[in-house]
Design a protein around this nucleic acid. Structure first.
Lengths: 244, 244
DNA sequence: TCCTTAATGTGTTAATAGTACATATTGTAC
DNA sequence: GTACAATATGTACTATTAACACATTAAGGA
């Protein structure tokens, strides 16, 4: 696509003059994981002098021939090796000075992935998991982006069966409750938690037991196959399905 | 800002080569109004041949030196004369072929304004209110944008006191219920509705009565002054307040 | 003036969801 | 086999939601 493309609308005709195309568009991914009873996020060392010593989220510029919603999918695929991840667009941040190198507007997505997934491979040595609670500062406005995504995640976990993307296929109710507590940052009553979960009818009892635990083993469950399919899809895939 | 700006990060250094800056960024506003017991939206005739006869939302390209969240505010101000409107960012649409003239990514906002506001002036002759229920097609992907914003509005009306932006200062409970019904598209029980509203403690009884109605007049209420201030602010203003 | 009409204004009950809390059971480890 | 620690389950209380019926007030016409 050339910058001298055939512009047809009045509003776009002005663009060539004032160089409207001088805004770059990026995506930033808040990639959540769950490990050691802690909610974690994938970060990397910032490569900007301004932010020396700070971590930043994983992101990239959107390519000229790339659908916006494909970009975070590509970032996930490139940096973690994972495909078919859960992805959700959250907010677009367009402050004038959010990027020290120029005008970059970024769309934030959050993703939920299984830290133990066999296909997960983090090759870049400076990319690593970091507990949410220990992150006070991030490069750019990435702390704001993280907080915004975390808030959205907290809103959604009680309504939609999405947290299972953070767990392995089989899990006990205790593990599930630990996860919810890590996400919400509160302690939950075990009996009421079990009641709420069973009421939602999301789970299937596998009639299997935990193994190699230093206490009485709990029953194992998995997410209903139907729901597992539905909530492993990216935003874009879901939207396409809605249209169909 | 020159296109030859000092790029510092690796990811942005690639930009100059591949012409990443060839993506234009726009905002589109779903401006809701309420009239004749119907939820309406401000639309205008599309000026593109491809969409002849179709309406489109009000939008504009984001200016190089303009904060993203300021752009819809400017659109509102330019096209309706209104300032201090309620504005909420909803979603960013970045499909490859959503704009026939080139690559334009758009961030959608919805706004709630009072159709009877004294400062409201729609000067452009092709801009007008259109009932939501009669709109089957819009230019571009604007029908999808409208639907997405409407869905978000429906999610929010029961939680936050925002619908009052659509009404004049004084209103009866019947008028308020009609408005909720128009937004949600369902009929509500009068007694349960009144109970829910009074429980939320949003309203102040003005000890005044409706006048010039062809039936028994109802009591008039207004939104608490505190809330009225809080929920008349734009997204950006609220976020700034949160930081402070 | 009185009666009809149409809308406002309020209360009760049943069902459902949510919260607080106690006891029995099972497997591990000593 | 006994102490321990975690699983598993039930019950009473409260709050919220949903369904539903009747009295009251003003307008308008006979």
């Amino acid at each position: 696509m050339s910058k001298r493309l055939q512009l047809k609308t009045a509003e776009i005709e002005k663009a060539t003059h004032i160089e409207y195309f001088n805004i770059a568009l990026s995506v930033d991914c808040v990639i959540f994981g769950y490990e050691d009873k802690q909610l974690k996020v994938l970060v990397q060392k910032s490569d900007l002098a301004e932010f020396q010593g700070l971590y930043s989220l994983l992101g990239d510029l959107v390519r000229p021939n790339e659908d916006l919603d494909d970009a975070p999918y590509r970032v996930l695929s490139d940096r973690t090796g994972l495909r078919d991840v859960y992805l959700e667009q959250v907010h677009t941040f367009g402050g004038l000075n959010r990027h020290p190198s120029g005008r970059v507007v970024t769309t934030a997505y959050y993703s939920l992935i299984d830290v133990c997934h066999h296909a997960l491979q983090i090759t870049e040595h400076d990319v690593h998991w970091h507990a949410i609670n220990d992150l006070k500062n991030l490069a750019f406005d990435h702390k704001l982006i993280l907080d915004t995504c975390l808030e959205r995640l907290r809103q959604q976990v009680m309504e939609e069966p999405i947290v299972f993307n953070l767990l392995q296929e089989k899990f006990s109710l205790r593990q599930l409750q630990d996860l919810y507590e890590a996400i919400l940052g509160v302690e939950l009553d075990r009996r009421n938690f079990r009641k709420r979960i069973t009421l939602k009818n999301w789970l299937v009892d596998l009639n299997e037991m935990e193994e190699d635990v230093p206490h009485r083993p709990g029953k194992l469950y998995k997410l209903r196959t139907q729901l597992r399919r539905e909530y492993r899809m990216s935003d874009k895939q879901r939207m396409q399905k809605m249209v169909v």
